[in-house]
């Protein structure tokens, strides 16, 4: 049973922004798969603005490598989109793993980002695609890099009257991409840890490598020092081993030590190596 609230379902972005500006104690609801669970567990709000009827928030457009994804697009729709399969394979893969078929039909990319869970599956792939978020309110528009958008676990820079309107990513043609998540069961489970990668190689050399690690640090992150280290290096066991060790060092640097690291760090090491080897 949900606590009491009033809801509106605008059909245009402008109306949604107007509601967000005028209503008190208001929350956006997209798929509701995070918000309603939280509300069932005690979170309260007086008003919700349902954005799922807004056509312009469900568009997908792209020219070459610049792709704009509407925040209200569901995981199922993303994983079925051919363009994203080609240019953002890690994102498609992650969308295919989230929750269950039902969750993928309900949950949205915008909700996943705005909820900002350390275990959110879409954040690592979006990080390696240099995602920039477009945010609007009645007062104006702003843009923010995904790295800056998430400020703490479950906390973003979004203000209550703001709406995420576009998720803009850079497609990565010519990269070998992937996403691997580890969970306690084969489906419908939250990631214990995850790795997204995009690797461009030339023969036996790494040309450009992008990595992102989820569920190990308070916020998923890119070990940019490791990416830099790999750029141009020979693809051999030695380099790969060293890179994996550097990733682990970076996680430790960010988070210190945690009991769960006894498990997570060796696994991350193994997965990074696997990803780099291909």
């Amino acid at each position: 049973m949900l606590p009491d609230f009033a809801s509106v379902s605008p059909e245009t972005k402008a109306d949604a922004l107007a509601y967000l500006a005028s209503l008190d104690d208001v929350r956006v609801i997209a798929g509701g798969t995070d918000l309603l669970v939280n509300m069932k567990r005690g979170e309260l709000c007086s008003n919700v603005v349902d954005i799922m009827n807004i056509e312009e928030l469900r568009l997908l457009s792209g020219d070459g490598t610049d792709i704009a994804i509407g925040p209200a697009i569901t995981h199922a729709a993303i994983s079925a989109a051919a363009m994203l399969n080609d240019l953002a394979g890690s994102l498609s893969a992650a969308c295919g793993w989230i929750g269950s078929p039902q969750i993928r039909n309900m949950g949205t990319i915008g909700g996943n980002l705005a909820n900002a869970s350390p275990a959110a599956d879409l954040i690592p792939p979006l990080l390696i695609h240099d995602t920039v978020l477009k945010i609007e309110s009645q007062e104006g528009k702003r843009e923010e890099r995904l790295d800056d958008f998430i400020v703490a676990p479950y906390e973003t820079s979004l203000k209550p009257h703001e709406l995420l309107t576009w998720v803009c990513i850079k497609g990565l043609p010519g990269y070998r991409e992937g996403y691997r998540r580890i969970a306690r069961r084969a489906a419908w489970a939250i990631s214990r840890l995850s790795v997204a990668w995009a690797v461009r190689e030339d023969g036996d050399r790494f040309v450009d490598v992008k990595l992102a690690i989820g569920s190990c640090t308070p916020m998923p992150f890119r070990p940019r020092n490791v990416e830099k280290f790999l750029g141009g290096r020979k693809k051999d066991d030695h380099t790969i081993g060293e890179a994996a060790a550097l990733v682990v060092e970076e996680i430790r640097r960010i988070t210190g030590d945690r009991p769960s690291f006894a498990y997570k760090l060796p696994v991350v090491k193994g997965l990074v190596q696997k990803a780099l080897r291909g």
Binding site: S7, G32, N105, M106
Partner: peptide, 24 residues
């Protein structure tokens, strides 16, 4: 949203009705 016994089809796709507002 963790058991599936409330599953319904909305526009022929499965959804959890326990996490779907009726207004939707």
């Amino acid at each position: 949203g963790e058991c599936g016994t409330c599953t319904v089809l909305i526009d022929n796709e499965p959804h959890y009705s326990c996490l779907t507002l009726a207004s939707k």
